[in-house]
Each structure stands twice: as structure tokens, then as C-alpha cells.
Amino acid sequence: MQATRSHETRTRRRVPLWSPEAPLIWMAPAIILLLLYSIYPLIYNIWTSFHKFDPLVRDFVWVGGENWSTLFTDLRALNAVRVTFTYSAIALSVQLTLGLAIAMLLDAGVYGRGLWQSLLILPMVTPPAVVGLIFRLLEHSEYGVISWVLYSAGLIGRQEPLLGGTGQNALFGVLLADIWQWTPFCILILLAGLKALPTDPLEAAEVDGANAWQKFWHVKLPLLRNVLAVVILFRIIDLFRVFDYIYVMTSGGPGQRTETISYYAYQTYVFINWGYTATLGVAILVVIWLTAFLYTRIFHVEW
């Protein structure tokens, strides 16, 4: 997110494409890999989204815009979009708020910071599929520790456990796992951002007699804007694609209360409705792409 522009000021001269002074040769391996692994699946999926897999001839047959017109009238897809947005919005705001608060706490100075930092990384090194299992046990309606705490505190009723009942708390149950795993990621990056803040503006504010809240709101937060942008961008991309927790913990249920677009796409994939899988995939890609694009524009994220 650095807007260093010194290279722009140098005189531009024409260099041969393959010269070490031109970017191409430096970036070639990365670009080749990324092209192979991103453009190929993209083209493949766009192509597939206009086809249907025919199990008898074991091949794709052309169906034109059928998958796409299905998509726009598919109530299940609409529900999945709604679930995904709700999920992402809650996860993102909680992770950011908690992440920022804890990062500031660590930054303000605590004893044994290294140890706490390391321990906070633990959730990140646990594969999401395993995290889902851990939380399934912790949120078990009869024997789960988290359920037990929530029952005892009267926060949820026994008839409506986190996982089970009519499922009104199911999304919250899955979110707990996501928040637990990814808040540390936010803490880490935001802590790094706080550590790197220039000291001058803060001192100036102190001289002006600003209190802690004012310093946070008017000085630190604006300075952290770019860091926040990074975190938000990466979290949005991952949240919109959330799959593992849903797969392990709820299979999208009860009903369709936790069915995200990725999980829906997986269902269509397992049941060989591959044309539609590709359609959903391309649609998610477009949504993520647009969100990220608008985001970089609105918040002036410039590489």
C-alpha cells in the first residue's frame, strides 16, 4: 500500500523488453505460474458455465445461457448470497474491532509480549478443517464447553443450542470458529502497523493536550488506514469464499441457515451439476472482484 513515487520522477527511457532493467524478466516466472493457475481455471469455468455435464456421453454439452438464467431466478443462490454477506459482515467487523483492540493493548506495553504473541498465533496454525471439528465438540448441544458456559450464563436456551434446535444460533456457532481463528491474523498485522506508526504526529497531539481517545480517533486510526485496508481486503476475499467451517460443522444447515455460496457450489459439484458449479464460481469471482475493486477506489488504495 506504499505510494512511493520516486521511480516515477526518474527519466523514463526505453529499455528492451528482456533487459534486466525491464520488469518482464523479473516477473516472468511468477506471471507464468499465476497465468497458468488463474487464467486457465477462469477460462475453463467461463466456458463450463455455458455447458452442462452429460453423464451419459461423459462430456459437456452446450446449453447457452441456461445456467445463467437459472442463477438469477435461483432462490437458493439468493439465500446463499444473503448468508455469505451476513457472515462476512459480522466476521469482518468483529475480527477488526477485536483485532485492533488487542493489538493496541499489546502495543501499549505488556509484560512478556513475545509469549502472548506466540500463543495468539496458535489458532492460525490449526487447519480450518480441524478448527471446525474442535468447535463442533466445544459447541456440542449436550456436552460442549462453550454451550455449557452459554447455558449457565443464560445467554442461550437449552432448546436452542449453538448447533441444533431450529438453527437460529447456527450461524453464530460457525462464526465463533471463524472469529477465533482469524482475529489473531488481524491482531498480528494491525500490531505491526501500530509498531510502524511515525511518532511525530502522536507527540504533536500529546503536546496539544489530546486525551487517549482523541489520540486514537484523530491520529492513530487515520494513520492506520492503509494497514486496515490490507487486512480488510484479504479478509473480504477469504470470507466471501468461506467453506471449511461450514462443511465440517453444519453442512449448510439447519435448513439453509448457514449455506454460503461456496458451500452451495460444493454441493452442486459433488452432485455433478458442473455447469452450474462453474456459473456460481464465476459469479462469486465477479462479486469479490467488484467489491475489492470498489474498495480500492473508495478508500484510495494505491499500489
Binding site: P23, Y37, P41, Y44, R241, S262, G281, F293, W303
Partner: peptide
């Protein structure tokens, strides 16, 4: 380092390769 007119776009493209849902990328892979 290098002068590039579309630096932001290149960076955004690189980021966008991460946006394909894994479920959907699995099949072509």
C-alpha cells in the same frame, strides 16, 4: 522498482488470482 504505467492494475490482477473460490478452481486443476 521498475517504471510501470499500470503498476496498480498489475498489482490488482495479482491479487485477483486469489479470488477464485477454491471449490470451483479444484475441477480445472
Amino acid at each position: 522498482r521498475f517504471p510501470m504505467r499500470r503498476r496498480h492494475d498489475v498489482a490488482f490482477w495479482i491479487l485477483s488470482t486469489r479470488m477464485m473460490p477454491v471449490v470451483v478452481a479444484a475441477m480445472p486443476f
